[in-house]
Structures are given as C-alpha cells and as structure tokens.
Amino acid sequence: MARAVTTRRKAVNTAIAWTIGLLIFFPILWTFLTSFKTEAEAISSPPAFLFFDWTLENYGAVQERSNYFRHFMNSVVISIGSTVIGLIIAVPAAWAMAFVPGRQTRNVLMWMLSTKMLPPVGVLVPIYLIFRDFGLLDTRTGLVIVLTLINLPIIVWMLYTYFREIPGEILEAARMDGASLRNEIIHVLTPMAVPGIASTLLLNVILAWNEAFWTLNLTAANAAPLTAFIASYSSPEGLFYAKLSAASTMAIAPILIIGWFSQKQLVRGLTFGAVK
C-alpha cells in the first residue's frame, strides 16, 4: 500500500526506521565487534565501539578451549542431515497429496500438523530413556533422528503449499503424451518443484541449526552442536566476553546469511501457507 509521499516525509521515515532497525540489530553488531577485542577491552568502561586494537586471538582461543570446529561440524551434520532425510520422506508424500488428493488428504495434513503441537517436554522422559537404552544419547545419529521427526510436518506442509501451485494441467498433458509416473516426476515435476524444495531446505536448515531443546537435553561433550556448546559459556571461567562473542559470531553468521537470502520464503513456511 506504499504511495508517493513528499521527500521530507520520506527523510523522516528513513531516519526513524534506520534508528529502530539499528537498535534492534545492535546486540548482534555488538557481539560481532566484541569478538575482535581483548578480554580487557570487552569490559572496559566506557565501552570501546570501533577504536580498539582489533585482534583475532579470540577465534583461536575458542577453538583451543574445546575444539570449536567439532561442534560446528556437529551442527552442520545434524541440521543438513535431518533436513535431507526429511526431504526424502516428505517430497513423495507432499507430491502425492498435492496432485492426487483423496478424501483423507486434508485430514492427513491436519494430523501431521497436529504432531507439531506436541510440546517436546511432554515426551522428554520416554525419548531420553529410549535413547539411553539404544545408546543414542550424545550421538549425531540420535539428534538427526529427532530433528528429522520434529521438522517433518513443516517440511511436508511447505512442500505441499509449493506443489499445489504447480498447474495440474501440465501433468495431465504429460500423461496424455504417455509419460509414465516416473517420467512425469523426473522430467515435468522436478524442474518446476526445485525452487520450492530449495526454500524448504533452507528454512529447515535454519530451524534445525537453532533447535535448542533436544540438542541441549540429548547431547553432552561428543555430539553437542553449537546451541549446546554455546550453553557451556553460561558457567565460564574468568573473563570470557570476547571469547563468548567470537564463538557466538561464528555460530550465527552462516545461518544469518542463509536467513537473509530466504526471508521471502520464511513467511509462508512458518505460517504453513496461511500468510503469503
């Protein structure tokens, strides 16, 4: 509903919006800046904003303190692994529901969504005990399984809302031309579905990367992804602001960049297509 306005009005809007935007962004910017300070400068009073001796030592210190790279890789493996397995299960399901809807399709979709309403704490005890008995506690495999399951409904729903926008006539035309179901999927559907699948993938990597209930409760030193690793800074030894900032910057940077690129898909994905 944007309409033409006077330049003066536009300048005022710009000033207000930028001020608020920078205030909201400030904690992230501050973390980023602090990660390049020495520990002494990080808590200096008055605080140093840009004029301090920029150093990279914290990034090295974070790695030395407890093998940061390992936890980073845990995050990568767990978030990408759970998303890819989720997609493998969800793509056929969403395809079938979008193009061959039956009487039960709607109910199945709603039921899938309802599993998302199950509060994790409601099944914390049995999952913990099952994981203990099957030796899955503190393993990447265990977390990939859980995160695949908790994000599967979102993956199915997102794909479904994308697939539904692919015109069915194209598939019918292909069928008339004698294309088999397999050919239909590979040559007709896939090219049209790729953008939707890509957005779904990005959104779910973000969600899995930041998941902080199961990752905190089911891991210890071995399989802890960054969410759980960063939590170890809640009981630190000595000065740690600069190291916390360095660890945090590396933990959020990749996902912040992915998030910025996929912001358009975010809305429909997170509202299950209710707002586009």
Partner: peptide, 26 residues
Amino acid sequence: LLDQEMFGQGIVRLLVIAPFFVMPTV
C-alpha cells in the same frame, strides 16, 4: 513503519529480521 517510503528499506528490513536467526542460547 517499514511499509512507508524510505531510503534503504531493504537494508532496514534485513536489520529488523536478523534476531530471528540467532540461536536461543546465543
């Protein structure tokens, strides 16, 4: 506010949505 006309709207938008991508523990 963000719906108004302004300079650098896209950048302000990126600044405002950034906290959503920060993991809870951080």
